[in-house]
Design a protein around this nucleic acid. Structure first.
Lengths: 190, 190
DNA sequence: CCTACCGATCGGTAGG
DNA sequence: CCTACCGATCGGTAGG
């Protein structure tokens, strides 16, 4: 493990604090104390509290996006869905603290960043809507409303950061495969 | 619709503010302004900011619990699961704003309330764990880890408050039935 | 329900 | 990275 520079240390500690206490309830003095320095000293490394939140949120957004390109566009729609879900879980499990901040604290972004964030989220959600639209048209998937299907799929995955612990019984890919399989084929034996 | 008394008006406006801005970022002056009074005047109706959060969270918790008793204990395990999920969605859709606060802001409860809240949540989750345990033992459900199954089920339902709007295409029971059916039998046609 | 006000804390800056 | 400090705002109280 490389030694993090101060800026990365700040982001890392802030991520944990924002997850545990929320963005608004975390003060710059809390953060400084975690690092053993004075609050004022933080400002030689970062410009503002909000800049930290921006970094956390947009790094996560970039992760979610960049992995989408690895999906095989030739595969069946249910296989594309399965792989999308596994990838999505993979991003979450890679950094559950940053994921928690990403999902819970994005609304505290400033006006400009907030608009950009929502625009990115819409584009990401469209990836799923497209898959469900194709699956609905071909009859491969039981879908009436592609947007509703997208929301149910993502909500199914977006709780993962709350309980996933690495080095447990399941690794990240196994969790993703299990969740995707359950979403595709249900929980009832037949 | 009955006219709410001032106390209920305060809870109602606070619920919307806590949902939109979060508990910590909502000031008593914000809340007072919504009601057209001074911040100090709030304290003739309520004792503290935290008391408001407690009311919102524990009212929701009580709703979730009281509905559990309506479930038919003689039904098959998958039918008990289906009905539990429909009921759960029903509680969420009945007040999506209070649900959002319940799910996102409970961690800002004080030490004592927080412990009580977590204890209640654990008991509620146990209801689902029991169902999945029985379904696993009988082979009726594809479950390896009842706790993991419980988490996947609740996470599937607990996003509902973010998008459900009453008087739309689907009513509350239809949404619950659709989600339960998808969780039980999956999205892939066979 | 109001005016007046409390001590504490907030994010952030100046200057070294 | 520190000391010293800023104006703004916080939850809440006293007294009417």
């Amino acid at each position: 493990m490389l030694v993090k520079n101060r800026k990365e240390q700040i982001y890392s500690e802030a991520t944990k604090l924002f997850r545990d206490k929320g963005y608004s309830a975390t003060s710059m003095r809390d953060l400084a104390q975690c690092l053993g320095i004075e609050a004022a000293s933080l400002y030689s490394h970062i410009r503002s509290k909000e800049e930290i939140l921006q970094q956390i949120c947009f790094r996560m957004a970039d992760e979610f996006f960049s992995r989408l390109n690895t999906i095989d566009r030739e595969a069946s729609v249910s296989e594309q869905l399965r792989e999308s879900m596994i990838i999505h879980v993979g991003v979450i499990t890679q950094d559950t603290a940053a994921s928690a901040v990403f999902f819970n604290e994005w609304r505290h972004l400033g006006e400009e960043s907030l608009a950009q964030f929502i625009e990115m989220r819409n584009r990401y959600e469209q990836h799923y809507i497209d898959i469900f639209q194709i699956g609905m048209d071909s009859g491969e998937l039981k879908v009436k409303d592609p947007k509703f299907a997208m929301l149910s799929a993502l909500s199914f995955l977006n709780w993962t950061h709350n309980w996933f612990k690495p080095n447990r019984k399941m690794n990240s890919r196994e969790v993703g495969e299990l969740l995707a399989e359950r979403f595709l084929h249900g929980i009832v034996n037949k």
